[in-house]
Each structure stands twice: as structure tokens, then as C-alpha cells.
Simulated scan of single mutants.
Amino acid sequence: MKEIVIISGKGGTGKTSITAALGALAGEQAVVVDCDVDAANLHILYEPKIESSQDFYSGKTAIIDNDLCTDCGICQEKCAFEAIDFKNGRYVIDEVKCEGCSVCFHLCPVEAIRMEENLAGKWFHSKSRFNNEFIYAHLGIGQESSGKLVAKVKQEAKKIASDKNIPFIFVDGPPGVGCPVISSLSNVDHVLLVTEATASGLHDLKRLVELIEYFKLKASCVINKSD
């Protein structure tokens, strides 16, 4: 089994189009994975038939039990992220602002706050119109666990490829050089860098090359839209 990740230093270089073309050519001989979980769009080209979906949980969110709450206000006072508001006569958690640090949980004198697993997104196992096994995911708005979700979909892709004896995995990686990109590069056999013949394309390609060299990975480069 060979895993090839296709990445670019910036959006708009044609990375996803090239991944889609490789997957279309390989057909059932490749598992295709969309690891751009913050803005997945490969499914638009692949028109997949979803076979299964799973919720993705990461981190925790504070929940206030208003039947137990005595409105002392300690939680709001101590919250460093201003995630607790007093509305309509009761304290409520702003789930977008809450970082799951659990300070309020530990400080509540009447144990009216509990920490619950945070639903951060969803991932899908599907079949593309080119007969690929196709894995993709959507990260929820305001969620920060993109690297973990990338690792999850890659793990599922490897399991499917192993179980069905599929020789290739093509990974459509996220743009940039951040955490989800680093996660998409883990344990790959080859990296295909996609850039364009512009000043910004060259600038971001250089940053990617530094990252590839740091991890000592084999790589090739496609200069897209060069004419």
C-alpha cells in the first residue's frame, strides 16, 4: 500500500482538481481521502454515495444545570474566555467561546456544572462516482480539532485499504503549513506539491519545501496553470 498526499502552500492552485483526476484514473485501485476538513469540497466533484457516517468528538464543553445553580456568579467571574453569560435570569454557556478548560467545573461550589464531550464534526465513508472508496469529513464551525480529525480520516482510509487490499491512498491535504497539514503528512510514502507560476505561489511553495525537508519526506512538484 502506498500513500500519496497532495498539498499546496495556498488555496487556488488546483490541488483538489489534481487529486480528483488521480482518483478518477485509479478507480477502485485507490482510496481517496479529503483531509481539508475545514473546507472539504472534493465531494462536490465525486458525487459520493454515503455508506456510513460517524460523529467526531474532541475536547469538552461546560454545561450548567440550572436546577442546581444558585446564581453565585463565580463561574462567570473566573472564566478567562468570557464564555458564560447571564441571560433571562440564568447563567448560560456560549459553546463557541468555551474552550473546555473546566475551571468553572472545578470552582462551582454546588457542583452545578458538568463537562460533556464536544461534538466537533462528522466524517463519512462513501463510494465515489469513479468507484473509489472515498473518505471525507466536515469540522464544525468554531472547532479547533482539525489535526485530530485529519488523523481520524487517514486512519479509517488505511483500515479500508488494508481490509480490501487496495494498493493506493490519495490524500487531498489542506492548504498551508499548519497543524492539519502536518497531520496529513504523517506516515506518507510520497508528497506531491502543487503550486502555480505566481509570486505568492513560489513564496508558499518555499515554506512547504522547508516543512517537507524537516520531516525528510520524498516529494515531487507540479507547477499548475503555468501557461
Rank of each mutant, 00 (worst) to 15 (best):
C69I: 14
I141M: 05
Q155M: 14
I113Y: 02
G142S: 02
Q76E: 11
P175T: 15
A157D: 10
I135F: 03
I169T: 13
G173N: 09
A83T: 04
Y91P: 00
F124W: 10
N165F: 09
K97F: 07
S145D: 08
N88P: 06
N165Y: 11
G142A: 03
I169H: 01
F168I: 13
D163M: 11
E117L: 05
C101I: 06
F81N: 11
K164R: 13
Y91L: 06
V103Y: 04
K154Y: 13
A112L: 15
K148H: 07
G73I: 13
F105I: 12
N131F: 13
G121P: 06
V150W: 00
F170E: 04
S102G: 08
I160H: 07
A137N: 09
C75V: 02
G140C: 13
A157V: 09
K158M: 01
A151Y: 14
I74Y: 03
D65C: 12
I84S: 00
S128D: 05
C72D: 09
K122P: 07
H125K: 07
A112G: 15
S162C: 06
E116L: 11
S102H: 12
W123K: 08
L139M: 10
S102T: 15
D172G: 04
W123E: 13
N131E: 14
A80M: 02
K78S: 15
G142V: 04
I141C: 01
D85H: 02
A151I: 03
G147W: 01
D94C: 01
I113V: 14
F170I: 09
V171T: 13
E77H: 12
C101K: 02
C101A: 04
C108I: 08
S162W: 04
L68W: 09
A151Q: 09
I113H: 01
A137I: 09
E116G: 08
C98G: 02
K154D: 03
A120D: 10
I166T: 12
A157C: 10
F105D: 10
F130L: 12
R129K: 15
Q143P: 01
E77K: 06
I84D: 00
E156C: 08
G140K: 01
H138K: 12
G73Q: 10
N88V: 10
V92K: 03
E95L: 08
D71C: 13
N132C: 08
A161E: 09
K154A: 14
I64H: 14
K97S: 14
H138E: 11
F134K: 00
I74L: 14
K148R: 05
E111P: 05
N132F: 02
N88E: 15
L119R: 11
Y136W: 05
S102A: 15
F86N: 03
A161P: 02
E133R: 07
K148G: 05
